[in-house]
Nucleic acid binder design. Structure first.
Lengths: 132, 132
DNA sequence: CAGAATCCTTTACGATACTG
DNA sequence: CAGTATCGTAAAGGATTCTG
């Protein structure tokens, strides 16, 4: 197997243009971390402490086992999550936010709060553009 | 043309599972808005006021004209940005954050600040996992 | 200059089945 | 139960060219 870990919010690729601007700015790093469907959702789902994959799937809903593993591996790769495997049968695994990962909860919460406050407006705008 | 506006952070699709959890939670709406490479970057790039596409491309760097247009259209569709076209030659167009879009600047700033503070740690983790 | 039209490559994500 | 292996689809994003 190839174990590709690049791509979506795996390795951050800085676009190297001639002029130094937002492209290679630090902010891009954070944006790239969220630039996929599940990264933020999983961090959010782990906010209360260690959690097993099955439990995560139950909490989140709509994520396939494959994508769940991929995403958790990405987060681990970026130092946001740790994986702990207990040698038992049936197997037991727990994922947990690292201290670094936990620091992301603040900004993520900000978005949660934003959605709670402004979600209606976004949906209204969408419907407006669908039925003009 | 088909003018597809669904997909990445266009229309928010709520995963309808049996149990109501994070999947159909409001937070997903905000996460989906950021779940692509350029949405957040563009909002960020528009934070100081109206801006023309060419200027945006210059500020951001590494975005193709096609993707720039697509992304701005998505933001417009979601009510976060307005497009104003002046009837002139050569053509002039300006994009501007809506009041709603501007409310996203707070959360986005939070991520910018986070990146400024913790970006090194992420990059360190990445390198560590690349060269063990 | 804005942006539409094409073409192309990558990959994210899903469904499913299988292994230890 | 955790995770991998496959297969398949959709779409994101890039490069390029063309037009008003």
């Amino acid at each position: 197997m190839d174990r590709t870990v690049g791509g979506s919010s795996g390795t951050i690729r800085y676009v190297t243009s001639d002029q130094p601007q937002l492209a290679d700015c630090r902010a891009r790093l954070a944006f790239d971390l969220l630039a996929n469907t599940w990264n933020a959702v999983l961090i959010w789902a782990l906010r209360h402490g260690p959690c097993r994959p099955g439990e995560l799937r139950g909490r989140i809903g709509g994520i396939s086992p494959k994508v769940l593993t991929e995403t958790l591996r990405r987060l681990e790769f970026n130092g946001l999550v740790t994986r702990r495997a207990y040698v038992e049968s049936p197997p037991r695994v727990e994922y947990e936010l690292t201290p670094l990962g936990a620091t992301l909860l603040g900004p993520i919460d900000a978005f949660g709060a934003w959605a709670f406050e402004h979600g209606d407006e976004v949906m209204a705008a969408q419907e407006e553009h669908e039925a003009p």
